[in-house]
Write a protein that binds this DNA or RNA. Structure first.
Lengths: 205, 205
DNA sequence: GTCTATAAGACGATAGAC
DNA sequence: GTCTATCGTCTTATAGAC
């Protein structure tokens, strides 16, 4: 119907002619994110992903290769949009960064589109070295080192990491292990207490 | 040599006569702790535990039943001695509790005898519900609720949990994911910065 | 692009011999 | 108390038909 073969003079002349079947690829990635987020790397099976996506498991391999490559394809791209928000955090004035980092964390975790890949990473990073590498790159290289770069102190890196540890711990207890009452607590009440602590780690005495 | 059959009039009359072979049971538990700590629950196999202990996998089942029962037997008991230290933490004056909790954490994780079961719990709790329950009982019920009980504030429980989140985050980054420089940082330098933060969560403004 | 078929093996758990 | 043997199920991954 909307299809136009190359050379017919139709609309999408520039589009590469591969990929006939609409969103199969995306459906697989969606399913993979969901499975990895819920079960972690080891407990997730390629067959399970395929079933959730309504396709055969061989097709998953056909698109992405090994299970580990499925993980990378499903998880890492989903966090790219978050990089823009991160840049906004980093461009803010430094005496504001505690609250901004804290709100950045909750922004990521309260949004289902980013919570799933994050859950997948955390659930997998504790046992899978590839996922641990993604985690390190995400937390350490992408965020901490840049924040540390702006702090004028001899122990800038340690400070930045302790601030991150506070936030990582909250994410673990609220979103992964789900310990009450922090799992259900109002975000504003948490921000109120945590933002000054993060700020203190970074620029305090 | 030191063996005395029942009725011979030897020393250990009260001892139940079962368990002929010396420390096989303990060897299995040791191996299980090691495996669960290194690989997490899903990646650990009963066969792997058996091989590490130098026995057959059927023997592991014979002693402990299912894999989940092996986990419980190996992990939970190993932390009982820590309860005494915890009691010392709780009996200390409240304006000291920040530093004491922080040092308590490092005491647990720097000691190989307690680090292994802790690693096993953390590595397993993110994907295994039984392990998550152990974690909640350990952190929440056993420690937090008792600390919260001593704080005179309306949000005592949230305060205690945010303090714990700071410590949990440090443990995650230092011992589980191993992010530098916090993974190699001198403990005293960390305590110096973290103890006041924990104290502030509990008794601060 | 999507499937069937299958290789090649690891897994948890049990029955039963010794 | 310890092992052998085994059942039944699950896994990743590939070759190849359509």
């Amino acid at each position: 119907m909307t299809d136009t073969a190359p050379g017919t003079g139709g609309r999408r002349r520039g589009r590469p002619p591969r990929t006939e079947s609409a969103g199969t690829r995306e459906r697989i990635l969606d399913a993979a994110r969901e499975e990895f987020a819920e079960r972690g790397y080891e407990k997730t099976s390629v067959r399970g992903i395929a079933k959730a996506a309504g396709v055969d498991s061989a097709l998953v391999h056909h698109y992405f290769g090994t299970k580990e490559q499925v993980f990378e394809a499903a998880v890492e791209v989903a966090l790219v949009p978050a990089l823009k928000v991160r840049d906004a955090v980093l461009e803010a004035p430094l005496d504001d960064v505690g609250e901004r980092m804290t709100r950045f964390l909750f922004g990521l975790w309260e949004n289902p589109a980013t919570r799933k890949p994050l859950l997948a990473i955390v659930r997998s990073a504790v046992t899978n070295e590839a996922a641990a590498t993604v985690f390190r790159r995400l937390v350490a290289s992408q965020l901490l080192r840049r924040i540390a770069g702006e702090i004028d102190a001899p122990d800038a890196e340690l400070r930045a990491e302790l601030a991150a540890a506070q936030l990582v711990g909250i994410a673990m207890m609220r979103y992964v292990i789900k310990i009450e009452p922090i799992a259900s607590a109002d975000i504003e009440r948490i921000v109120e207490r945590v933002a000054p602590v993060v700020q203190g780690h970074l620029t305090g005495p």
